[in-house]
Design a protein around this nucleic acid. Sequence first.
DNA 1: TCGTCTCTCACGTTTGAACCGA
DNA 2: ATCGGTTCAAACGTGAGAGACG
Length: 458
Amino acid sequence: MQQITDLKHSSAVPPSASMTHAADPYQHRNIAMNLEYSELWKSFHEIGTEMVITKSGRRMFPYCNVSVSGLVPYAKYVIMVDMVPLDNSRYKWNNEQWEVAGKAEPQPPCRTYVHPDSPALGSHWMKQPISFLKLKLTNNPLDQRGHIILHSMHRYQPRFHVVLADDLYSVRWGVFQTFTFSETTFTAVTVYQNSKITKLKIDHNPFAKGFREEGTHGKRHRAQKSQMCPENTAKKPKITDKEPEFMHFSDMPRLPYDPHRDDSEGMLLSKDVSMAQDEHMSPWGGEQDPAQSLHSEGVMDYTNSEQLVPGQASYQPQRIHEFERMPSPSSCVDGQADRQTFGSRSTDMATVPEQELSRPLPSMSLGSPQCRALDFPVSQNMPGCSKGRPSLGGHPLYSHYNTEQPLSHWSGALPGQYSSPAYPHPHHLMSEHSLHPSGYHHSNMAEWSQYSLFPYSC
DNA sequence: TCGTCTCTCACGTTTGAACCGA
DNA sequence: ATCGGTTCAAACGTGAGAGACG
């Protein structure tokens, strides 16, 4: 096994990790990630974010949009997103609140969405916010288009991975850091359950403009009238007032909430945010918020612990492999209302088994631009996966969020190891299934960390 | 059989990229 | 090469209906 490097934050460097710093050619210790439009995310989060998933794939709204800093400008990185279940429960919407409706269904194949720009230089990633607009969610387990597969009525949280890698072939053993944002947790649904979420979506999603109260009926009437008056249909006002930042970053969608915009949509957000904060109608009313319930059981759950504390400062950057209760000393709110800065906190280490180094990786390629999701196998060798998919050179890669799945290659450490904050364990991209102790519960983040992002050893 | 819950699909509307002609 | 108009695919939530389940 070859130890690649380590990303331990200086504030919590264990002795072993400190030793590895000397070998780190890039000194990746200060990578920070900001969630853009965090105010919008929070306004949804306070109500209980829901994301519609469809068979053909549905974009997220709000979509994931982050900015990173602290990268080495001349080093290449791959940036990815995946979705991890928040708990082991299935939910139902009852009496205006979410209730546990039973045990979660077996997790579908775990797919990771790789940002289309990947791999790119650190300078590129830091140049502008990184948009995951085109990430799509689906409930079709047989999806062939590379969308991220989720279960309806289950809760998920996006994870953002920054991987030091020259190309996608080297991702599997690249140095990586993982970030999560508590306000991005959501419930996957096929139909919106909470009418407040529907209203927020309509108010803020440009594509749903037609359903806005102030315009819906009028425009629909107008459409009806236009059938009687053809001259009204012929002239549609052309949208030419693109925001400069959108021109610079073509992948940037028109998120209604933009602090740089001074239009009515931005004002709409402000109104709604304050409304949400004032009313603070938690959808987890009768039931304790599962996140909090986990805490009440003493389960180490970093994500949910954030939700216990209101206010901006409660949103802490999180490393997926680190499950300490203490807040990150490096995390802070940078003062901007629409973003929060999250610093990485602990060591990430990638290891590469000799057999992997010597083996070609035909199944990982850049693939087509429109299909960037990766599937990674758990129980099969990647090259052996034969489900045909258009992306990745026709080499599908599957993984599963198996509740009984052993320790991830990706996350490396055992749950018991997380109990010792002073010695967080490094990430091993290749780790040992056999080390997995029996008796895992599937209801805490320590366990989620077992989910393979890249189950390399098959 | 019935009621409830969840999912699918067609629909109307909006957006923005692509195309074409001046 | 640029500008302006048109077309159309993709996106959105809605609402009706179908299917599964207890």
